[in-house]
């Protein structure tokens, strides 16, 4: 009886705020604030290039230089085999998703702290902040993609039919970046010294991801365990789509990486939403 009465009573009001109230409006709110999400990304992009001399060129230069270093060190000095695919393309195919993930991850870790004045003064779905950081880096990713296209022209390399699978792997990279970013952003609010660990994670991640080498060099019995790192599946997938070399793909590992990706997104969103309620009090 009281339940029905309560329901009627609540109908009079558009918004009821209670402690621990499951916010069914959350996703609706997120949709309502979708413009803010792009405004924040737009702000970050605008501001980043406003203060620099060469502006937009930075986002081209950074991945290009890294690619150069990798090509020289691994291709020329270490003489890693790359088959008939030009080594820079092989490296670049891996660099792209890795760079996207790594910069998103480290930028997102500081995103909430960096916008703490907004967090303590205004309500909006907090997920927008790390998500817009990922969007900014996604723009950088697309710009870097232009370099790859340039490289392909340079080497007269015609992309194979498997390039059609690339959007799947781009989406996967996006999801991994989002999931990890939500998680690290929330952790960083609670434990402020976590930021010292982030660069270490990124560096370590680079070493255990097949960026400078092919994951075929990993012994067969370790391969599945190695694929626990979702970036392995993504990078292999990028290589396969771009070079058409099917030997790059290790199917059980690929499925596992899809699974890990979904898990990462779910845990990231779950943890973020759990912590979100306390952000304003903690920050």
């Amino acid at each position: 009886m009281t339940l029905i009465k309560d329901k009627i009573k609540n109908k009079e009001f558009d918004l009821v705020i209670e402690s621990n109230l499951v916010r069914k409006n959350y996703w609706k709110d997120l949709w309502k604030y979708r413009e803010l999400f792009f405004f924040l990304a737009w702000r970050d992009i605008l501001v980043r290039y406003k203060q620099t001399v060469i502006g937009l060129a930075w986002s081209l230069l950074r991945p290009f230089l890294t690619m150069l270093v990798f090509t020289v060190i691994f291709g020329r000095l270490a003489k890693l085999p790359s088959g008939d695919v030009p080594y820079p393309i092989l490296v670049f195919a891996a660099m792209l998703p890795w760079q996207f993930f790594a910069t998103s991850f480290s930028d997102a870790s500081n995103s909430l702290i960096g916008n703490s004045n907004m967090l303590t003064k205004i309500y909006f779905p907090r997920m927008i902040i790390p998500a817009s950081t990922v969007i900014v880096n996604f723009v950088d990713f697309l710009i870097s993609f232009l370099i790859l296209t340039g490289l392909m022209f340079w080497y007269h390399f015609l992309p194979p039919i498997s390039i059609l699978a690339l959007p799947v792997f781009i989406a996967q990279t996006f999801l991994i970046s989002m999931g990890a970013s939500f998680y690290v952003a929330a952790v960083n609010v609670k434990y402020r010294d976590f930021k010292y660990i982030v660069p270490f994670i990124v560096q370590f991640g680079l070493l255990i991801s097949p960026v400078g080498f092919s994951s075929n060099v990993v012994p067969e019995k370790w391969r599945l365990l190695y694929s626990m790192n979702p970036m392995v599946g993504v990078i292999d997938g990028f290589r396969w789509s771009i070079t058409g070399d099917a030997s790059q793909i290790y199917l059980p590992g690929l499925y596992l990486s899809f699974g890990v990706t979904i898990f990462l997104v779910l845990i990231g969103v779950w943890y973020f939403r759990k912590m979100e309620r306390t952000f304003a009090d903690l920050i």
């Binding site: 009001f13 705020i17 209670e18 205004i122 306390t278």
Partner: peptide, 14 residues
Amino acid sequence: SRITEPTEGRISLK
């Protein structure tokens, strides 16, 4: 303004 959650009680807004 929903920046922080109440510990107890309820707010109804129209």
